[in-house]
């Protein structure tokens, strides 16, 4: 796999060409190409086995078996996951968890780290008193805010959200999505939003890609896909919504 820094279209923050991905030799993603414009939200929607999560992991380079052309601006991408309990180290306090990415970025001064963390907490609407707690003392929504904070502390403009709200309560989902949209405007972020929930995708995406069994079935703007689906499978998916 090659990573060239120069994106072909300067409006894009992410370009993927001919991505194929495998687990233990078995192919799960077939020849997927997509692009995400700066400041936009691209929704990847599909059922289980559609390969949507795998695409996310390949782009973030946290899996091994894939090939294709992936170009990301500044080579900087972060990811937030579905299972908030799994995404935070259960044996570390929140403060440590938030300091770690800063330490890795070379912020050696403890005061500087604490100050960055403090302003980030305000951005994601978390109380400072949570810093001395462990992940399982927090609610699902609070944990996801911590995960968002971790992603943002690393100053990436491209964030991949892999079913980031699927494990949350409905009212909490709503809060987190609103937060993510606000942060997008405030900080100029771009999201690759992966979900099986068609309704959420319709609420936040600019463009949508429908996946089935590792292949792209249909691509288009939200309006096109939801109001004017062309493919049978897309229609079937929309029809299955209650």
């Amino acid at each position: 796999m090659e990573k060239e820094n120069k994106l072909k279209d300067p409006r894009n923050i992410l370009e993927v060409e001919n991505l194929n991905a495998f687990y233990n030799g078995k192919q799960y993603v077939y020849d997927v190409s997509l692009s995400l414009k700066r400041g936009q939200v691209l929704g990847l929607v599909g059922e289980s086995g559609s390969g949507k999560s795998t695409i996310g992991k390949a782009i973030a380079d946290i899996m091994k078996e894939y090939n294709g052309n992936i170009r990301i601006e500044d080579d900087s991408v972060q990811m937030i996951f579905q299972n908030t309990l799994d995404a935070l180290n259960p044996k570390k306090k929140i403060l440590w968890i938030l300091e770690e990415p800063l330490k890795m970025m070379g912020v050696k001064n403890k005061e500087e780290r604490l100050s960055k963390i403090a302003s980030m907490l305000i951005k994601v609407n978390l109380d400072e008193e949570l810093l001395c707690r462990y992940p399982d003392d927090l609610s699902g929504g609070q944990r996801q805010r911590v995960c968002i904070a971790i992603a943002l502390l690393q100053e990436s403009k491209l964030i991949i959200a892999d079913e980031a709200t699927s494990a949350l309560d409905v009212t909490v989902q709503d809060n987190i999505l609103s937060l993510m949209m606000n942060l997008k405007k405030e900080m100029g972020l771009s999201y690759l939003f992966i979900s099986h929930d068609l309704e959420i995708i319709s609420q936040i995406s600019d463009e949508v890609i429908v996946l089935k069994n590792g292949r792209i079935v249909e691509k288009g703007t939200v309006e096109n896909i939801y109001d004017n689906p062309k493919e049978e499978y897309t229609k079937k998916l929309l029809d299955a919504c209650l």
């Binding site: 059922e47 289980s48 099986h196 068609l198 079937k236 998916l237 299955a240 919504c241 209650l242």
Partner: peptide, 9 residues
């Protein structure tokens, strides 16, 4: 999955 859900319901 969404498509299965409706059938089960």
């Amino acid at each position: 999955d969404v498509t299965i859900q409706k059938n089960i319901l």
